[in-house]
């Protein structure tokens, strides 16, 4: 089938729910309305109110209840309507989802997939454009996944729905309907914790994910540089091996993400490359990211979100250093 990311995710949910009756979807407006982005459209009709549950407005309650459900034998898939609203559930994620397995030494597990739209570029209200991947990756205990295309979205989600861990499944709003892709009709899985090469090249390594994958692809194409482009797909645990393999080959590393610059995923990757491949580099590592400030209102988002020109200029800088 030739589908966009919304349909690919919907299809992954439907196929997984057919196979596993412990999977329960819950969240705000996910039933009749099909979710504000229509990702769960049609699933209520297909699986009924018992398995597709419209909840009260209650982010902490939804995530907390999902933890209780997961620890009691179900496989909940809570939808957080927007990543910016999910901070109300931060306490549940950080205090409990990360720790339940370890604090019971494995006797209780939290097999749960938290789905939420992330990142900006679609002219929405405040708090609808957050890129929270680093918050959820920092503590350890949460798997953080962010696909950049329909094929990966379906395969990663179907894999996440079989894992016995809490998975944050971050869906870039801008990529929901940006393009379609050929995706197998049937079930398939993509390994979590494994990055992919978007393309291979020799002159530099560009590590990116989410909304920045198409931006980097276009910038590289326009510039004509021969670059390895690595799509992380999983933020935590990070696929350090793939990054190092490419870094050692090209000797030049750039990290591109939409989340703000400081203390972020780029910093993490830079540190790992510096610690383990410093003497195989021929230039300082470069990070391209949004400035270190909260996401502005939509009128200013073009000044905030990294664009192709910003990436191209960083490519020039990296080549000339």
């Amino acid at each position: 089938m030739n589908v966009n990311m919304v349909s690919a995710i919907n299809n992954a949910l439907a196929l997984s729910m057919e196979k596993d009756d412990k999977i329960v979807l819950l969240g705000e407006d996910i039933g009749k309305d099909g979710g504000v982005f229509r990702v769960t459209d049609g699933l209520l009709d297909k699986f009924g109110e018992k398995r597709v549950v419209d909840t009260p407005l209650s982010e902490s309650g939804i995530i907390g209840a999902s933890i209780g459900m997961a620890a009691s034998g179900l496989r909940p898939v809570p939808e957080m309507q927007f990543a910016g609203f999910m901070f109300l559930a931060f306490s549940q994620l950080i205090n409990h989802a990360t720790r339940m397995r370890s604090r019971t030494r494995g006797s209780m597990k939290v097999p749960m997939v938290v789905r939420t739209p992330v990142s900006g570029g679609v002219k929405t209200l405040e708090h609808h454009s957050e890129s929270p991947e680093e918050y959820y990756s920092h503590m350890g205990g949460l798997i953080v996944v962010e696909p950049s295309n329909p094929y990966d979205a379906k395969g990663l989600l179907m894999r996440a729905l079989k894992m016995d861990d809490p998975v944050m499944f971050l869906e870039p709003t801008k990529l929901y309907r940006l393009f379609k892709q050929d995706v197998p009709d049937g079930p398939y899985e993509i390994d979590i914790g494994k990055a992919s090469y978007v393309q291979k090249g020799d002159a530099m390594t560009i590590v990116t994910y989410g909304t920045m994958v198409p931006v980097v692809k276009n910038a590289v194409e326009k510039h004509g540089v021969s670059a390895d482009i690595i799509d992380l797909r999983t933020i935590n645990p990070i696929d350090e091996a793939t990054i190092l393999e490419s870094a050692k080959k090209t000797g030049k590393v750039m990290i591109v993400h939409e989340a703000s610059l400081s203390f972020g995923v780029g910093a993490e990757i830079s540190a790992r490359v510096a610690e383990k491949a410093m003497f195989e580099l021929s230039a300082p590592i470069i990070r391209v990211a949004a400035p270190s400030l909260p996401y502005p209102m939509p009128g200013y988002e073009n000044y905030y979100v990294p664009n192709e020109k910003k990436v191209e200029s960083a490519i020039d800088r990296l080549l000339s250093s």
């Binding site: 902490s60 907390g64 209840a65 933890i67 209780g68 459900m69 620890a71 009691s72 306490s91 549940q92």
Partner: peptide, 15 residues
């Protein structure tokens, strides 16, 4: 913070 876990555990019992 344990209270929503209770609600979720109760959801599971009903389900």
């Amino acid at each position: 913070t344990q209270m929503p876990h209770g609600a979720g555990a109760a959801f599971a019992q009903k389900y």
